[in-house]
């Protein structure tokens, strides 16, 4: 069992956890991930490490409650436990002094991009960050990104904050303004990463994305996370998770991530039904949910 040292909502349905795991905290490098299991009946899900504190021995993950497991995790509070956390898994980001880099985080992808932005800044790059979200409420880590970047831009789909539009609109604008861009890191939903890749490709800008396939063990044992990169099969858990965006087969990744849609839907419905029952019977208190999961 692993203790949650601190938990807080950063935005509706997006929660930050610091989990006690001193070895991972000491070892992890930017770009690596952990696999967690919430309880004894839980599935194993990969989550990229957003930060760590080697002194406190904690690993920070930022979780968006989308399916059953992430919603269940987001109900956990400071002082509670999760069954398992293992890592650090995957290869660390390749950090170089490229010159001018653009770090793009879409939604909760900002949390994943953050540690690599820190490492890129430390390596001497001029870091331009673009944070994208559906609306103002869902913008996360703006302050942290600001501290580690030379320039920060925010885009929202509805225009409620920052530039009205998508991250790719901002990126295109920078390119059109003639800004010299040597490297782009884009992390977020697959359609966003695909779009970024399409924008940078004609300009020959090296672009890296972090893939998020379905995983089981995370150590190369099952091959469930395989993706097609440069027409070859890779195991994202050990060969990645970061890859050259211009070589990734995003279609295949999108399709494979839909393998369990039916089951995911029924699992979530069951969870919500049980949750409402527990809520009515008083075994879950309202205050525990903060401004979190809303069904």
């Amino acid at each position: 069992m692993f203790k949650i040292i601190h938990a807080e909502f950063l935005a509706p349905d997006i929660k930050l956890f610091q989990i006690h795991s001193p070895k991972i905290a000491k070892k992890r490098k930017a770009g690596q991930f952990v696999i967690i299991r919430v309880d004894e009946h839980g599935e194993r899900i990969p989550l990229t490490i957003a930060d760590s504190d080697a002194v406190k021995g904690t690993v920070t993950i930022i979780v968006q409650g989308i399916g059953k497991t992430t919603k269940q995790l987001n109900e956990k509070n400071t002082g509670e436990f999760i069954s398992d956390i293992v890592g650090p898994l995957g290869k660390p980001s390749e950090i170089e002094n490229y010159g001018n880099v653009v770090v793009i985080g879409g939604g909760v992808g900002t949390a994943i991009a953050y540690p690599t932005a820190v490492a890129l800044k430390k390596a001497g790059n001029h870091v331009i960050s673009i944070i994208g979200a559906r609306n103002k409420e869902l913008v996360i880590l703006e302050k942290e990104m600001d501290e580690t970047s030379n320039e920060v831009f925010v885009t929202t789909d509805d225009g409620s904050y920052g530039m009205h539009g998508f991250v790719t609109d901002k990126l295109t604008q920078l390119i059109n303004e003639g800004r010299k861009i040597d490297f782009v890191l884009a992390i977020g939903p697959i359609p966003m990463m695909k779009r970024v890749s399409e924008v940078t490709k004609p300009h020959g800008i090296k672009t890296v994305v972090s893939l998020n396939p379905i995983m089981v063990d995370g150590t190369g044992m099952c091959g469930g996370c395989r993706a097609t990169v440069d027409d070859k099969t890779v195991f994202v858990c050990v060969d990645g998770p970061e890859f050259d965006a211009h070589k990734v087969d995003f279609e295949n990744l999108t399709l494979r991530n839909r393998a369990y849609l039916t089951q995911e839907k029924s699992s979530l419905e069951k969870f919500i039904a049980n949750h409402e029952e527990a809520f009515k019977s008083g075994s879950i208190e309202e205050c525990k949910i903060e401004h979190g999961p809303r069904y």
Binding site: H41, V216, C222, E264, S266
Partner: peptide
């Protein structure tokens, strides 16, 4: 490995009592 791990280790044959599908 994946098929058997999902069934044996993760108990997917007892979905949705167990979460792995």
């Amino acid at each position: 490995n994946e098929f058997l791990t999902r069934i044996n280790l993760m108990k997917a044959y007892r979905f949705p009592d167990y979460d792995s599908p």
